[in-house]
Design a binder for these strands. Structure first.
Lengths: 201, 201
DNA sequence: AAATACCCTTAATATATCTTAAGGGTTCAG
DNA sequence: CTGAACCCTTAAGATATATTAAGGGTATTT
């Protein structure tokens, strides 16, 4: 039964990865072989500040936050990752040096992970995976660039409205404290923003 | 002579592209064939809002800014690109839909460009280019992520100090108005930040 | 089921940043 | 070479956002 579940999870990964460039049987076999399933409890960490990020992680279910902690001890959310999304500290993963971020489960989660050597093996032996992961990163890059534009040009209220519009599923399952940390404002101020928005309607 | 110059420029591109994955002769030949040189005057545009971004651009010399204009008519700098850097509206380039940004030369520039069909041809026929461009995007992604972290966690002063530390060459050749737009503050406030910093020393 | 930790809100006060206006310096285009 | 456009700075007043403190609600853990 556990094995059956795991097979279903890998089908999800496969569907996600074949969307842009369909995979051949041999590629699928390797994919299933090299990705390892792991369950993570709520508040469980898959990466600590100072660790070298050794895995590229696909989220099957549940939700993670990736964040940094500043000198004052405050958390700043860089990214959320829920079902069908990837999460990893790319900077540490590619440099193989200790990173500066945490990746923590906000909800109980199931993930599929591949190690750096195995990913490099895939890149080297099945060129298609280069394209596949290039596109994954490109999409994440475009998302990040939109976020930077918001950060430098929009008010907190605009950013909040944009967030709940762009990620309604996330917005409804995350506590506002976490959203505030992602938007770069305090949760008290987000409270005020929400009140003002409610009065506008 | 113009041809000799152009050959030198393509050598620069080659050096840049072979750094991570050295290229074979055939790959180099294709590279030189598919990249086209272009000169751009100061204030010349290589992309307008509403255009479909048809090229991936490598900057040989000079400097560009990529920016969006908001409803109030204000420019917001998403990115600078000087020698040895890439610039393109990835979102429009990959979706083949009209984009929302401008790319404009801040200084007279020389660039090398490849079109989307030619890049796809390279990807398909020389798998190594997938890796090369994957790494280019990964680096840009990591840079952007650091910028997002700054935006959501640091004061304007901290962001400014970080900018001139991280990009000293850019900082010294850009007007402060452009830097302010990149940092997401007004140029008047940047002026105050600089005065405060000067007094601290 | 109690205890604890977390979450959301409100409000008063403080700080960061913007807006507007103005003047002088520099660079650029005609 | 000269006017126009751009750039930098200053400062006063306005607005956006942070901080602190407090109370009540909800979920998690024991």
């Amino acid at each position: 039964m556990a094995l059956h579940e795991e097979a279903k999870h890998k089908e999800l990964l496969l569907a996600h990865m074949s969307a842009a460039f369909p995979l051949q049987e041999k590629e699928i076999k390797e994919l299933f072989l090299l990705f390892t399933e792991r369950k993570v409890k709520r508040r469980g960490f898959i990466l600590h500040q100072g660790d070298i990020c050794k895995h590229f992680t696909f989220v099957v279910s549940g939700c993670f936050k990736m964040y940094a902690i500043d000198q004052a001890g405050k958390e700043h959310n860089l990214e959320f990752a829920a079902e069908n999304e990837w999460v990893s500290d790319l900077s540490s993963f590619y440099s193989e040096k200790p990173g500066s971020v945490y990746i923590e489960a906000i909800e109980p989660a199931v993930i599929l992970q591949i190690t750096r050597p195995d990913l490099i093996y895939l890149y080297a032996n099945y060129p298609k995976f280069n394209s596949t992961f290039r596109i994954i990163i490109e999409r994440k890059y475009i998302e990040l660039q939109n976020r930077v534009l918001q950060n430098i040009s929009a008010t907190a209220e605009e950013r909040y409205v944009n967030f709940i519009t762009q990620y309604p599923a996330l917005a409804s399952r995350l506590p506002n404290t976490q959203i505030a940390s992602y938007l770069g404002i305090t949760s008290e101020f987000l409270s005020k923003v929400r009140k003002d928005l409610a009065h506008k309607r």
